[in-house]
Design a protein around this nucleic acid. Structure first.
Length: 416
DNA sequence: TCTGGGGTCCTCGGGCGT
DNA sequence: TCTGACGCCCGAGGACCC
């Protein structure tokens, strides 16, 4: 059996732990740069404030309905997530941390347990120790545990155990096809054309047809929902296969030197993340785009790939390559809105094949170590490359940011 | 004025070796 | 030596997730 433990309205719940005034009120959390709504409390959902709503269009609505709007505070959410996950690890050794707010727990050897009680224990402990409410869905497969979790979320107890075929069929008939994990908008449309309205309809289509007309992904899901354990617990300890830093600019940029500065910063950020996981990258992808929402402006969107002669995690090499390429991409007269650097072809830094003509950049290794250590000691990004913005005039818009209650000593709550 | 960021996996089509 | 069939590899782009 698998349990899916999902934190209810995670970002809003984290904020409420440290600011009880938000209890019972509609709360909306904004994306980076305070752009659009990315998380909502139940009360905000009940007001039909949509996910992804651009806040400048919904500000008036929020004011008139007393919605509390907050910038996203990832330092807080990351730390709270870590606390929740470490509690979940006490309940089973087989756990897959699926995202910041949910985990799959494999319950092997729990045949003699009362799973409803066990799920309740999980919920109670997480709530008591962290203040975060959760829902627990327990079922024979991962796909079904996702559906059980949706039912749990709607139930009073917050726990749903799908342990018989009758319960499985009832649940499948209840859930709409577009709400099934792994079925996005496009697929839902195609499936509806075939008369698939619920997950149950999907499971009744013969597997050969699914394989033929859709793909192996849907075929796997099909088996899983039919109760055949197909999707397995995934290993959490693997290194990332791709590391990205992409950002929208505060306004729009047309000056090549401004754009190059941003790209250099994104590149060195990627390099830093590579070094943190002790990896090197073989290739770099640089992306640049104008404002897609500007209907009147000239549009330009491009991405280019740089294949390196030898894998590296040196900020100097990655930044230089990315800046050179972005300089070739910039078109005169275009107002650019967003850029990004993605590093791929990731290999462990201690084992890679030298190229016959490779230049020795071994001096970079102690230099990068030194930069990382100084930044660790004196605060992130104190040491920068010469082509980065040394005055740190670029800052994310975070006008409604809550304190870093759990990760910054100056922000700790004082009880008087 | 203002519309997120970071991932994974899969398919498809072209290039290329057998 | 040429050609077609086949399979593998790789990059681009799509779809999905949170």
């Amino acid at each position: 059996m698998y349990a899916l433990v999902d934190c209810n309205n995670f970002y809003a719940s984290c904020e409420r732990v440290f600011n009880p005034n938000l209890m019972g009120k509609p709360v909306a959390i904004l994306s980076n740069n305070d752009g659009c709504v990315i998380a909502r409390s139940d009360e905000a959902k009940a007001l039909n404030l949509p996910m992804g709503a651009p806040i400048f269009k919904w500000e008036h609505f929020c004011k008139s309905h007393n919605v509390e709007i907050l910038s996203s505070n990832y330092a807080l959410y990351g730390d709270m997530s870590h606390r929740v996950m470490s509690i979940l690890k006490q309940f089973t050794p087989d756990i897959e941390i699926y995202s910041i707010d949910e985990s799959f727990l494999e319950l092997k050897g729990f045949e003699n347990y009362n799973l409803t009680d066990y799920g309740t224990q999980i919920r109670n402990r997480v709530l008591k120790w962290t203040g975060i409410p959760t829902s627990v869905g327990i079922a024979p497969t991962k796909g079904l545990s996702k559906i059980a979790n949706k039912i749990a979320r709607k139930s009073k107890s917050g726990v749903c155990v799908m342990d018989t075929d009758e319960k499985r069929i009832k649940a499948l008939k209840w859930i709409k096809i577009e709400s099934v994990w792994g079925i996005g908008n496009r697929l839902a449309k195609r499936l509806k054309l075939k008369g698939c309205v619920t997950a149950f309809d999907f499971t009744q289509i013969p597997e050969v047809i699914i394989k033929k007309e859709f793909s192996v992904v849907e075929a796997r899901l099909h088996r899983d929902l039919n109760g055949i354990e197909t999707l397995k617990l995934e290993d959490n300890h693997q290194d990332k296969k791709m590391i990205a830093t992409t950002r929208s600019f505060e306004g729009t940029l047309k000056n090549p030197s401004d754009i190059k500065e941003r790209v250099s910063t994104f590149a060195s950020h990627c390099a830093q993340k590579l070094r943190k996981q002790k990896s090197n990258c073989h290739s770099i992808i640089v992306t640049l785009r104008s404002n897609k929402f500007d209907k009147n402006g000239r549009q330009h969107r491009e991405s280019r790939v740089i294949n390196l002669a030898a894998p590296t995690n040196s900020s100097l090499i990655i930044s230089k390559a990315a800046v050179t390429v972005v300089a070739q991409m910039i078109k005169k007269g275009i107002l650019y809105k967003k850029a990004g650097v993605i590093v791929t072809g990731i290999v462990p830094s201690n084992s890679y094949q030298f190229n016959l003509f490779e230049k020795d950049n071994s001096k970079h290794i102690p230099l990068m170590d030194c930069i990382d250590n100084l930044n660790k000691k004196y605060g992130i990004l104190k040491i920068k490359l010469g082509n980065q913005d040394l005055q740190r005039t670029w800052k994310m818009k975070q006008e409604r940011l809550s304190p870093k209650y759990t990760t910054n000593i100056n922000d700790i709550i004082v009880v008087k």
